[in-house]
Write a protein that binds this DNA or RNA. Structure first.
Lengths: 379, 379
DNA sequence: CGATCTTCCTAACACGTTTCAATCGGGCGG
DNA sequence: CCGCCCGATTGAAACGTGTTAGGAAGATCG
């Protein structure tokens, strides 16, 4: 509308092309027009408890009482003070409050990767519990980078948050181990605590691997691929161990598990694994694959379809996590479901207990995963 | 291992079954054993600058200088102080620092829905810019709930964060409008600012809708479904407007756009829409669908395959957002790509400018979307 | 009129930051 | 060897803002 060439849809410019509209609201404006919601002063720094007291004609302590112990203030006085706060646009300075009170009403969840729907669901569970306890949750993303993780831990410590939930990149991190000793409760999520000092909530990944591969064996598969990596991730190791155990239980030799290692648990890696897998000579090619993660499984699935391998006829696939997209794949994916939201809720509850209950005893809570069978293995 | 019945994989218990291991690390432990990383005192409250000064045998001011202006302290003294901080496990109290300094090094991104990969990518862009400016980002999720959004805005104000990026549930929220006046810069992400007072970064959704439908028209489709909702979302309205405009441009009558309204932009809603769509009599059934969102498109796609409708032969599908799962679908999805990460980066840059540059002028930056054609429309 | 509340105010406090004059330890020109 | 200059360091004090204990003032009641 404002720039004719922009209305054309032929994109000959680089995709980062952009337009700017209404470039200059004059800066003077902020101080110029009438107060939008009362006679708010638009002075430099925000008004403090002091200004409110002056405006309401009461003392400073009374204003504080209105904020923290409203019942000890007479309704008339309270109303006066509240009106003054409204008019001045008073916002309590949390730094000052916290400095004096020593406590904060904030929890933090430091997670590996916000773009993995799994962690988003865990966070939702955490928030449910926090809301009920009148706490707020800040989410922090380490992006699987140990340095970022360390930076955030320092920051949270400096902020004196009420507690930290963490899915660690580096469970042995010294900061993580010393955190509890400095008075900040910590709960490990989806990973058993590195040391013994702390609570953890996790899901039995060995059992999950067993469930997946037992299911495949029961459907008649005798040569099964395990796709995942890197080996440094506990989750990957445990799920593979479970797979091996299931094979052994079925009386199959260990070499019937064909291990394809990936460098990350992503869709792209899953696609790459598909090419390696389908390139194997027919005699050695597995008839089923167990992926350490749904993202890998979805990549594998996509590439199989693209290369003309039928799922599950030519290759049955089992994923892990049962993210929403698993059921929505064109060939719905059999997957191992984890109680994601419950994981978050339980972790938050443990954290609250650690923070509030002096007789708190550290615990490791482990949940039982569940196999959800869909078309990718049932044909 | 510890509980025999847990080793069995027959899940007869409810899926929330759990085990607890090592229930009691004796609480006395925290005060009992040796300091794990030096002679750290395990007293009640964390040591302050005062204790550090005493331990290092220097004055209080010198410790502060080590923290804030290391260059004015001689290397020897500095080393002494740093050693003392290490030993005591000193952590600067950010509340006190901020109270005095008045400024915080934290940005917040208040987003609609953390489980939507779109927002996770925007957040990643924000973090890139923040990292470079030595700021940290806290993520907050409103979960599309206006009350939660309001609570978080209050909290962030009280924390005196350096700035707030927000994809609002309720763009007209009074709190949002008064935030800037109270000294906290705000940038609207993926939504043009409600009022004029503030920066915003968005993508031209009308153009995106035009691109999608123009592509379909060029491929010969003359009856096209628009699937999305609720109508209250700006994004949905704009994308539909674009669709209508493209039809008009092609000289097709407006009733060639068959609108199916959903109650949310989710996979489940997409599935539901598929049944409605395929249930239409052949004469009125569209040969192509433009979905307001990739989640809806993926649901539609899944159900089509399931009901035996070939994509794109029986129904061509275009999504919106180009999330990673779009390319990974078994029939790769044509979609309208938004520069998600750039959106975040630009928003963060505007925020920094608003915070640091006194001559800052509010801007509305709008990006141009791009169509990515894949098999779901190309056959 | 004294006892008892109720309501409100005063002042100390939490802790790191910053300022400023004062002090200290050398090195250096004389 | 003396006095001076310089950088490093110190001690004291003010500050930012809200919290809270303890006491004063005012109101109510018997």
């Amino acid at each position: 509308m404002d720039e004719p060439q922009a209305a054309s849809s032929t994109a000959d410019d680089p995709p980062t092309r952009q337009r700017r509209r209404r470039p200059a609201v004059p800066p003077a404006r902020a101080a110029a027009d009438g107060p939008p919601a009362g006679g708010r002063a638009v002075t430099g720094r925000p008004p403090g408890i002091k200004e409110v007291a002056a405006a309401a004609g009461v003392s400073l302590g009374t204003v504080s009482n209105v904020l923290n112990r409203p019942h000890v203030v007479s309704p008339r006085t309270r109303a006066k003070v509240e009106r003054a706060m409204e008019q001045l646009g008073f916002v309590r300075n949390e730094s000052a409050r916290q400095l004096r009170a020593g406590s904060s009403r904030i929890l933090a969840y430091l997670m590996l990767d916000p773009s993995n729907p799994f962690f988003a669901d865990v966070a939702t569970g955490i928030e449910e519990v926090a809301d009920a306890a009148d706490l707020s949750v800040f989410l922090c993303s380490s992006g699987e980078d140990a340095a970022r993780e360390a930076r955030y831990l320092d920051l949270l410590l400096e902020q004196r948050v009420a507690g930290v939930l963490v899915t660690p990149v580096d469970a042995g991190n010294e900061r993580l181990r010393t955190l509890p000793a400095r008075g900040t409760p910590v709960v490990f999520v989806d990973r058993t605590a590195g040391a013994d000092d702390g609570c953890s909530v996790s899901v039995d990944d060995v059992l999950g691997g067993e469930l997946a591969v037992t299911h495949l064996v029961e459907r008649g598969h005798e040569r099964i691929a395990f796709i995942g990596g890197p080996e440094t991730l506990n989750q990957v190791r445990d799920r593979r161990t479970g797979a091996e155990r299931a094979l052994a239980r079925a009386g199959l030799p260990p070499d019937r598990l064909v291990v394809l290692t990936t460098s990350a648990l992503t869709v792209a890696e899953g696609r790459g694994a598909a090419e390696r897998l389908l390139g194997l000579p027919a005699a050695r090619r597995p008839t089923a694959a167990f992926c350490a993660n749904d993202l890998v499984a979805l990549g594998l699935l996509q590439m199989c379809v693209q290369l003309g391998a039928a799922v599950p006829e030519d290759l049955a696939i089992v994923g892990y996590d049962d993210i929403d997209f698993a059921a929505a794949a064109a060939v719905p994916l059999t997957s191992v479901r984890q109680p994601r939201r419950l994981l978050g809720r339980t972790a938050a509850e443990l954290l609250l207990d650690e923070a509030n209950n002096p007789g708190h005893a550290h615990q490791h809570v482990q949940f039982i995963p569940e196999l959800v069978a869909r078309r990718s293995t049932l044909g």
